[in-house]
Simulated assay, not measured.
Amino acid sequence: MTDFFTTHKQAILYAVIVVGVVLLLRFLTKLLHNLLEKRSRRKHPNEEPTTIHLTQKILNALWIVLGIMALTFIFIDKESYKAATVNFYLVLYLGIVAVLTLVTASLVQTWFKRKIKQRINKKDDTTSYKFLRYVAIFGVYFIGVLLMLIAFESMRSFAATALGGAGVLAVVAGVASQEALSNLVGGLFIIAFKPFKLGDIIKVDESMIGTVTDITLRHTVIRNYENKMIVIPNAIINKEKLINYDLGERMCCQWIEIGISYDSDVNLAKHIMREECEDHPNLIDNRTEIDKYNNVKKVVVRVISLDDSSVTLRAWAWASNFTDAFVMKCDLYESIKNRFDKEGISIPFPHRTLVFKENQLKELKQQVSQPETTN
């Protein structure tokens, strides 16, 4: 045993030093973690310090990996020592960059989260902050990856070019597809010109209508009234003609259109429609003072077309927002139909009149009167 210790004295001493350094680094990491955690909880008592916990875990893993690599120096020959040293410093560099990247991204995420929460409490628009959060986090990871690529000889020129000024845009433009760039630019246009924001109700077409829940670098997310999430690329939604029910004045005019038969009383039907609309709780009075003075009705009902088998009536009913207007429309169709049935106003089915020529009519009668032949 004494001979073994004497023979491998330097290696054993080196291993003890490496283990001691690793334990010391883990101890210092623990102290730093506790200090930062107390400070964070004192400043933000309602938030969990996830960034600090993440940093501690990554650093502890890095110290162990570096310790294991340092211990392998005992078992390698002098020819492999140089290559092992290069790999050791490479792992150290990559680990430090990874830690800084993840910590920076987490800090950026936390900062934006707090700002968004503050604006929500103040009932301010959060669209710009949520979109810029995606841009900032993407930028942090992009720079972190480029810094990692610098460590490799074959990728050094590429990373150095990308890190230089306009080189970032050049690399992105060269690597990304045209569609991805279109979506990114589309997202920037949405944030800059604000055709809609988070929480707005928009209508892209008859199948895509709902509340905007998120705007990312690539797409816009809409929650429809079936609670389904519709994902629309920014490049597409920028080209579409859409309706924003929350842009400007939120009051919404809802058309109530119903066709009645030609032998029904038009004036009675108009009166029924006006009464049912005025009795609905979602209806609002949109008349001006001049309209009230001139005794203009709260709900205007007019004949808008004379169709093949019906007279189409339309009522203009106002509601405070799109949601109330939609509910009002559904309720009014039901209540007006019930009133029409009671008052004898009929809603006709489409019908056609067939006219036969005399010769065709004779042939048809002969075919009907001719007895069937049996085999």
Rank of each mutant, 00 (worst) to 15 (best):
I272K: 04
V108N: 04
T50P: 00
K197H: 08
T29P: 01
K329C: 02
V327F: 03
T312D: 12
V175Q: 03
L31I: 14
A159P: 04
A105Q: 10
E275G: 02
R39H: 09
L24E: 08
L149H: 07
T220R: 10
S106F: 08
R133H: 13
R218S: 07
K30W: 11
F138H: 04
K38R: 11
T55A: 15
S346I: 03
Y14F: 14
T374G: 08
L13F: 11
D324F: 13
V303F: 00
W318D: 02
K43G: 01
S177G: 10
F88P: 01
K365L: 05
E249S: 00
Q118A: 15
H280A: 11
L71E: 03
I58S: 03
L313N: 05
K357H: 13
H44W: 01
N282R: 10
S369Y: 04
G139T: 15
D324L: 13
I68G: 05
A160G: 06
F152N: 09
A61K: 11
Y245Q: 00
L163N: 02
N294T: 04
R314W: 07
C252R: 05
Q56Y: 10
K82A: 14
I12T: 09
I258W: 05
W63G: 02
L107C: 01
K194C: 00
S309D: 10
L62C: 07
F193E: 12
D308E: 11
I96H: 10
V327Q: 05
N359I: 08
H33G: 04
G139N: 13
L13A: 11
E206Y: 00
T211Y: 06
S157E: 06
E343T: 01
I143A: 09
A159I: 06
V22D: 02
S40C: 03
R26M: 13
Y293K: 14
G187C: 04
F142T: 04
I58M: 15
T323F: 09
G174D: 13
K337Y: 14
Q370M: 09
Q109A: 15
E153M: 11
F158W: 06
L181D: 06
V185H: 08
L147V: 15
I260D: 00
L62S: 13
L268P: 00
Y93A: 15
A70F: 08
L354A: 07
K194T: 03
C253F: 10
E240S: 12
I191F: 03
L181W: 12
K239E: 13
L146E: 12
A136P: 00
I345K: 05
V65A: 12
T216R: 06
D324E: 15
R302W: 04
I58Y: 01
T72P: 04
D200K: 01
K78D: 13
E334S: 11
Y225K: 06
R39V: 04
C277N: 10
D265H: 07
Y262H: 03
N60P: 00
F349L: 15
R250G: 02
F5A: 12
N295F: 07
Q118F: 09
F322Q: 09
L13K: 10
I74V: 15
L32Q: 10
T110D: 15
L32V: 07
H53E: 14
I236L: 11
E275L: 05
D331Q: 12
F340L: 03
T127F: 07
K239S: 08
T211W: 08
T104M: 15
L313A: 05
